[in-house]
Amino acid sequence: MLSVIDLTVRYPSQAAPALQGICLHVAGGERVAVVGPSGGGKTTLFRAVNGSVLVQSGYVALEGERVGEARGAKLRALRRRIAVIAQMHDLVDRLAVYQNVMAGALGRWSSLHALRFLLRPSGAELAEAKAALERVGIPEKLRSRTSDLSGGQRQRVAIARALVQRPTVLLADEPVASLDPARSEQILALLCDLARERGLALLCSLHQPELAMRYFDRIVGLRHGRVVFDRPAAKIEPEHLVFAS
């Protein structure tokens, strides 16, 4: 599904490459956690997968199509298939919840369709938003103001938006960084269930190795821009995780 082949990324302002010779494969329905210290390259890896960073060598391929070479409409078409869930700050506060949720469909809608939806959403569109919110457990928030939601609810709205996008890859960059432990577990469980149920390749960066071991099939350790280990969660030894904390 998602392949990262010998990927090297170097930022102009820095001597050391941010990523160096990364190789990674994630199959549909597979749940992979990326752990490692801050500055280890997790965010750069996600940006490279999403095609928003210039790649020096190697490439990222989505079902055989190279992300890095796409531009304009083609890049947008590829991005449509990769849903991104960041920390909870990426919703538009002033929109209603259903508007934020259906923003996931913008990649497949025409501009006119998008404007029409803002003015007068159709019943089918509202139903789709409602179904997505039902799946993430907050259908009653359909028409709420987004700024009135709690941190955990905002994260659920972001996930609902990702569902509406109908992606094949789900990227979650520190999705639980600003949530309390109980909410963190709920959100991770939800992400992992969704990946299995819809056959999505889930790539999720995490600070907490113990959560990674509990919820994910595979764990990748990233440090100084290199993969230091990549193995099934069941085969992770304590010494693998010392560096991450």
Binding site: R79, A86, D90, V92, D93, L106, G107, R161
Partner: peptide, 12 residues
């Protein structure tokens, strides 16, 4: 951040 999130959905 929200604008980049929208761009990431492939929106025009």
């Amino acid at each position: 951040a929200p604008v980049r999130a929208l761009e990431a959905t492939g929106a025009g």
